[in-house]
Design a protein around this nucleic acid. Structure first.
Lengths: 101, 101
DNA sequence: TTGACATATCGATGAATATCGATATAATAT
DNA sequence: ATATTATATCGATATTCATCGATATGTCAA
C-alpha cells in the first residue's frame, strides 16, 4: 500500500483510538460509538471506518444488520516494515543481523 | 513521541519525498529544493523541514549560512516499533520468537 | 407490509494545513 | 558599511478533512 495513504489513515486521533479498540477484537459500529463515549457520533465513526477500510487496515464482516470490524494487523506490520526499509534502513540491517546470530 | 504527531508528519507526499532525500545523507535546504525540481519553492521546503524537526524526525546541523538536515533513523525506528506494538502485537510476538530461536 | 434497528451517505460547516510571494533574519564576503 | 547568499517567517489563499444533523439504505421481526 502507498506509504502516504497509510500515514494519512493514521493521522487522526479519533481514528487511532478506534484502531486500538479494533486491534484485538471484532466490534460493531455501535460498539465503537459506545466506547468513544459520545466524543463523536455514529456517522463520524462510519466515516473513519471507511477511511480505514480504504487503506485496507481493517477486516470487515457482515452479520445480520451489523457490520463487524477488526484491525488488519498484517497490513499494519507490512506498512511499518516498508517505512522501516525506506526511512530506517540502518536499523533494519540490525534486525537482520540479529536473525543471523 | 506521540503516534498521531508522528503519523501527521508522514502524512504528506512532499514531506515523504524530502525524507527519502534526507534518509542517508546530509542536505542543505537548497539541496532539497533542487532535488524537488521546482515542484515546490524554498519557503515551502522550509515549512516542511520545520514540521519534520518538530517531530524530531530530522537531525539539524548549522554550517556557515547553511543548515544541513538528515533523517533521524533512530526516531523512525522507535516510532515504527511503537506502532507495531500497539497495532500489530501478534506480529511483534513473531519477531520475539524469532530471536529466541 | 410495516416498523424498528444498524449502518452508510449526503450536504454543510469549520478547522487544519500546503502552498505561495514578499520580506525579515542571519552569516559571510567585499 | 554594504552587498550577497541562505534560510526562516509572515500573511493570504485554496484545499483537505473532521464533524455534524438529516436522511437514505439495508436487514430483520412481527
Amino acid at each position: 500500500m502507498d506509504q502516504v495513504k497509510f500515514a494519512k489513515a493514521l493521522a487522526d486521533e479519533t481514528r487511532q483510538e478506534i484502531m486500538k479498540f479494533l486491534c484485538c477484537e471484532w466490534l460493531s459500529v455501535n460498539d465503537v460509538v459506545d466506547r468513544l463515549q459520545g466524543r463523536v457520533n455514529q456517522p463520524t465513526v462510519s466515516h473513519h471506518l471507511k477511511k480505514l477500510e480504504e487503506a485496507e487496515l481493517v477486516h470487515v464482516r457482515q452479520e445480520g444488520r451489523q457490520r463487524f470490524y477488526s484491525l488488519n494487523q498484517e497490513m499494519m506490520s507490512i506498512c511499518c516494515g516498508n517505512l522501516m526499509t525506506n526511512y530506517a534502513p540502518e536499523f533494519v540491517d540490525q534486525v537482520i543481523k540479529l536473525r543471523e546470530v
